[in-house]
Amino acid sequence: MNELLVMATIAGRRCAFRADDVQSVIDLGSVTPVPHTPDFVAGMTALRSQTLTVIDTRRAIGLGSSEWTSDHRAVVVLIAGFSYALLVDEIEDVTTGLAQTGTIPGGFGAQWARVATGMIETRTGPALLIDLPILIAGPDRSEVAA
């Protein structure tokens, strides 16, 4: 049960990624914008011979990005054969999850609940465990329209 987690701050909230899902943490170099894609696609960047799609996690959750600072590093994850670099406020540390993910009465709020598997207790306090495939799919269309 003592699962390794990569801790990060997204839009001021503490979040966790499963360390198994994370390939590496890289220094984000130049990002090439990709026109005509949803706003949470920040662009593309290169990692060695690989091309990464850079996702702004704040926008992917459905929150604005402008009010948050971004870490110069990014979390690289592999989802369905494609590599993504996740842009977050700050990458903190690797820590251990202490219990099963759970939920709390009242929920986390609609936008957070959508991208989170649940709440997880860690040595450094509770955090939201992020569901990566849902995160990179971006906000629902209905939310975008709203």
Binding site: H36, T37, T53, F82, Y84, I136
Partner: peptide
């Protein structure tokens, strides 16, 4: 290939 979210464009 590009990621699905980019390919969608």
């Amino acid at each position: 290939p590009v990621a699905p979210i980019v390919a969608k464009s």
